[in-house]
Structure formats: structure tokens, C-alpha cells
Design a protein around this nucleic acid. Sequence first.
DNA 1: CTACTTTGACAAGATCCTTGAATAAAACGG
DNA 2: CCGTTTTATTCAAGGATCTTGTCAAAGTAG
Lengths: 381, 381
Amino acid sequence: MRQVSGDASVLRRLNSDAILRILRGRELATLTELAAAAGVSRPTAEGIVEDLLADGWVEEYAEDERADRQRGRPARRFRFRASSGHVAGVHIDSSNLQVMVCDLGGEVRAVRRRPLPVDTPVPDRLSAVAELIRLAAADAGLAVAELTAVGVGTTGVVDGEGRVVKSIVLPGWTGLHLHAELSARLPAPVVVENDMRLAVTAEHWRGAARGCDDVVYLFAADRIGMGLLIGGRVHRGAHAASGEIGSQPNDNWSAFRHVMDYSMAVEPGELRGGRQSAEFAVGRARAGDEKARLAVREFGRALAAGLLTVVNPLDPEMVIIGGDLSSAGDLLVEPIQESLDEHCLYPPRAVVSGLGGECIAVGAVRLALDHAERLLFTLPA
Amino acid sequence: MRQVSGDASVLRRLNSDAILRILRGRELATLTELAAAAGVSRPTAEGIVEDLLADGWVEEYAEDERADRQRGRPARRFRFRASSGHVAGVHIDSSNLQVMVCDLGGEVRAVRRRPLPVDTPVPDRLSAVAELIRLAAADAGLAVAELTAVGVGTTGVVDGEGRVVKSIVLPGWTGLHLHAELSARLPAPVVVENDMRLAVTAEHWRGAARGCDDVVYLFAADRIGMGLLIGGRVHRGAHAASGEIGSQPNDNWSAFRHVMDYSMAVEPGELRGGRQSAEFAVGRARAGDEKARLAVREFGRALAAGLLTVVNPLDPEMVIIGGDLSSAGDLLVEPIQESLDEHCLYPPRAVVSGLGGECIAVGAVRLALDHAERLLFTLPA
DNA sequence: CTACTTTGACAAGATCCTTGAATAAAACGG
DNA sequence: CCGTTTTATTCAAGGATCTTGTCAAAGTAG
């Protein structure tokens, strides 16, 4: 219960925050609009905007070529100064690094990517991350120290302090205090989060889940992962292990069986893992192979069987299929939607992620923006 | 985003709310303590308390026989005036009604209960509810119109407007606008909610889940139901159908099979339903029957199998077994805890509900209190 | 009984907001 | 081209609230 109270300066901060929030939410605003929207008088709004202007959070938009000319004296128009700060979103994958630099308006200013072997020693990986952030920042004309926040997404169980409690994919990652390590290497505030949670964050921000507050995100690639958006907030769980469905006892998540069987039957010589088998089957299905279509369909229904155990208790609005296998598109969504329609009282919509491979980096940017906003606004929302 | 802003009176309300909240949270407080806790000056705290005193929200505690005498002048001590308002919590079960009247401090002032046949026509049931509320209020020396809020819990899918979208147990209940019907019969604000959600609310407030913000509540009686507490808030779901696990496709929730088989084997003549079989088996197990113990154990493990599909993605701190079958106690909890320990990365604690049959009425009281607090505090928390 | 400590009460000063009137800048119509 | 209309800006006066500081009151400790 964050309770606000105090002297008159609190009131000022309250009103200032309100106006800044309004400006963040729209393109341009006049003083009259701001005063009305914030519920304060004009002179108050004016004084606040003047302060924000002086502090660099707001800028005046001078150009005057607008079509919707009003009758009277033209109002000064203001907007949030997106370039008043920048953040970086980082995705540390098993074999790749990606850094995305955005301004506070969420506009992308630079993107860097580089491959990194899965067996890279931990110190080298950390250095590579720091270096790639430096390069991406430089692309955007910034020093790392100028970044308001750096959001980092990685696989594994990541606790609230940014420690990697457990990681199956990256060797040496388990037990790493990623937050501390990166903070030591970067002259900027670092925030670390699990990749699944960032994926669903990204979908909520700019993806398929805009406006949806209850979402189950299914990540399907080499492994199956899950991210949950509940009541508009990303769910962490009591031990930050939300979405870790690797150790399920029943067969619900060993869905790859169907496509692997298919792969084995068609090309016995070729040994394919789960993801490769799925991609192989999807390719053949698109080429018109009926058996492949059925295998993918069974794969989808098997995924749905696992999804149902979560969807029925949670009653989400939407199910999003993300990860590499989201490229299967309708081939995967259709059987999943079918299963949901059959077995749910209120079937959620099943859709594929539209964000693609940048999903987690985008979520990391959002994470960093959230952190930046905690600095931007003096009082909690 | 509930954004607060405005003139100086907002500041006053902010501070007033802060002080009232502090007083709700502790037994007695002096002005100095209040001022420090609320972060305002003494004179401000004094003025606010004076206003609250005048409005009847706060009372001065005059008795002066306290042991912990301080050195200086004795401070006046104030406390929240619990009797400044009262609420009722109502539980409409398949065959019973229960009404609990509490003051705003949560102290129980009256309880009424009465059986009501499951096939009672809807208008009669509604009248019986209204009448029992009237009686319980009278027991507490109150008229219904004096109740600040009435919380109502019932089975079925209950949407945000208090409509019973679907009910399997009560005939004619489906499609009923319970909120509207009861509002028409009661001269007090009514809030309606699903019984599972109230059960978990009650556990969070006064039961086993105090201080736990992520809880899976499993209701085991004639039917299996579920209530979810996520991030300290009760989860409703996009269609208010959270916890409706009746239509699960797999066998996870048909756990009664084990105890029913046992019952059939031991007393083939006696036809028992799921709950009866379970109670029968529990009774025999307590009497020392090894086969019964095993049947109950299998029952527990089967429940756990269903639980796991939810527990693994959600990563709760605690699993609570409620409903009539919670009387099985350790016989049920032990196999469930075993299964959780085996199959979870971070196994939650499994416990039985300690609230018993009053659980849902208590949750309804909490629901009503929440509503009352929205009236009590002028600004959202 | 006196010194000390803590609380209570009150006044002065500061901050912030609001209302209302006067002024400024643009569009419209003759 | 000029006055009227419309809307925005600026300024001053007034009110609500909070804070600091001072002094009186009511106890305890010795």
C-alpha cells in the first residue's frame, strides 16, 4: 500500500506527474487541454509545463502548419521530449546477443546483433554484452552512461534481484548474479528479467495483446516456455519460477513427439530435434504433404492439451503462440483454437506473435522504460 | 491508471486517508505516532484527527490504566471506530444460507444460518436471503439500511456486474442478475462474487494464507473448484470464469475414482457419490483400514496431478485444500505435498484450510469491507 | 517540591492552487 | 483594410493547507 501524503510540494509533484503522464500518452497538447485533463486550473498547468520545459522533459512544438485552424489565438502546443532519455533492451539468447536502443518515446534508435557460441565462458559473454551495448549506444550517438536504464532478458529462473537461480541452456549461468555482474560492467542502471516474461510484456506493449490484460503466452522453439500476463501485470510467482513448465509429470508438454515421429518416418536417416522436426513438418505441410499437415495438426493439439490445463483455471482473453515455431502460423493456430473451442467454457482467442525474433529485446526495452518511468515520475502511479 | 491531482483539498484528503489507514492498521495511536507515520506535522495530524473524530470515524480512548507509562505528559490516544459501520457477508450454498454481520473492524456481531432446499424457486430463495440478512442485522441491533455494504457469495460463474452467467448446482440460477435482484430487495449496497474467489479471499485475510500473495486454493467437496490469489489480488479472468475447471479434458480432476472404487469394493450395496465415498474412505482410514488409507492417498495424488498443471506455471507460495474434504487433513495433504515436492522446481506448501464452513461467508464479509473502504477512503489506495 | 520530558495549542510564514480581470494574437466579415 | 469575435496568455488577489517555532500543560523521577 503505497500511501502518499505530506506537504504542499507533494501536491505539486502530484500535478506535475499527472501532466507529464498526459503528455506521454498523446502527441501534442495545449495548456487548456492539459489543464482540463489534469483537473487543474490553467495558470497551474502553465507553471508546471514551464518547470517541465526547464527540466527538459517537455518541448514546445513550434511548427505552425496545421490544418485544423481554430478561430482564436493559436495555443502553444507541447509534447513529451522523447529524446530526454534513452534506454537499451538486451536479449541474451543461447547463441545470440541483441541490443536495441530506444528513446523514452519508445522509438528505436539503434539495433545491434551478434552471434555468440553457446559454450562461450561466462566472463567473455558478459564482456560481449557490455561491448555490444556500447556499440549500439554509439550508433545512436550516446555513451552508455547516458542510458537511463538497461533492461536485460535471459533464459532461466531469474529472481527479483536479478540473480539467475537456474538455467538449463547456458553453461555457467546458474547461480550467476547477472544484475551485479552487468552493473559492475555498465555505468547505467540495469534491470534483469526472465525472457518469457519479457516476451509477454512485449506482446502487451506493441504486439498482439495490446489492450488485453489476461494473456497466456506460449513460447515454442527448442523448448516450451510460458509467460503469463494476469490483470495487466506480468506474473512472476513466489519463487520467480512462473512459467517453468519443464518438469511437468504428464505428457502434456512432450508435444514434439508427433512431428518427430513424422520426421523419422519420412527421412529416417536425418536425426532432427523437436524444433527441427516441427519446422521440417511445417515446410512439407505447406508444400502439400497431407501426412505432414496431420502431424503438425497433432502437434498443435498436443500443445493445446498442455495449454488447456492453464487456460481453464486462468480464463485468459488470449493465447499467443510465440517463438520460432510461430512461423507455422495457421497450421499451428487452427488446431489449437479448435481444442480451446472444444474444451473451454469461454475459449480465448489463439493468435501467433507478430513481433518475431525481436520480441524479447522489445520486452527488455519496455522493462527498461518502466524503470526509467519510476525515475521520471516522482510518485508511484 | 488512477491519477490523482487537483487543488489543496486533494492534499487534505490524501493526508486524511493516510491517517485513517494507519489507524485501521493498529490498535491505538497517539498524535505524535500518527504524524510520524503519515509523514505530516503534528498540527496537521491533530486537525485531521479532529475532523475524523467529528465525522465519527475515529474515537478517543480515554481509559488511562496502562502499564507502559512514558515520562512526559500522557498523550491522547485514538483508534478507528469499528462501530462506525457494519457489513454483512452472505453465503448462498446449494442447500444452506449463511449471513455474518461484522463491524468495520472485522469483529463478528451476528451469525445466522438456515437450510434451504436445493429446489427452492428462485424468488423464494431471494426472499429467504433478504429475510435472513434482516434477522442477522437485527441480532446485531441494526436495520438493513444501516449496513454499509452486503457481500454475497454464490456458486457459478459470476461476472463483474453481479450476474450469474452460469450455474450448474442451483436450478434457475443461470442468467440471474443476482446483483440487481438483491439490490431491489435490500436497502443497502450489494456486491456479488463467486464463492471460490471468496474462499481464497478469506484464507488471505484470516486463514492459512495470511501474508501469502500467490496462492492456489483447491475446493474439494461434491465438486472440485479452484480459487487463485495472484500477486495479492484475487484473479477473476477475462470472462470471470477463472477457476472453472469442470470441463477439463484429461483425467486430472476425476480424482474421485479411487475412493469410489474403494467404496464399491467394500460396500457394493451402498451407492456413494464422490464426496461421500471420500468421506467414507477417510473414516475407514482413520479407523486403521490400510486399503482405505491407500485409496485416500491415491485420491490425494490424483488431486495433486491436477494441481500440478496449475502450480507449475503459476509458482504459488502455498496450496490450500478447502471444502468439506479438508477434514481429511493430513491424510490428504501428505500425498499432495509429496507429489508437489516430486514434480515442482519450487514446491509450494500444501495446507488444509482452517476456516471450515464459514470460509465463504468470511470472504463475503471481506468483499463487503473492501467495498465499504472504497466509500470510507475518498481516494484510491 | 523541583527539574525534566513529552504532549497540546496557537501564531506566523510559506507553498500551491483558484478565480477573475486585463491583455495579446489570430481568424472572420464587411 | 479594419473592427469584431474568439481563444490564449498573463497578472493580481484570495483561500486552503502545511510547516516551523514558541509557550503552556501534564505527567514522572529524584
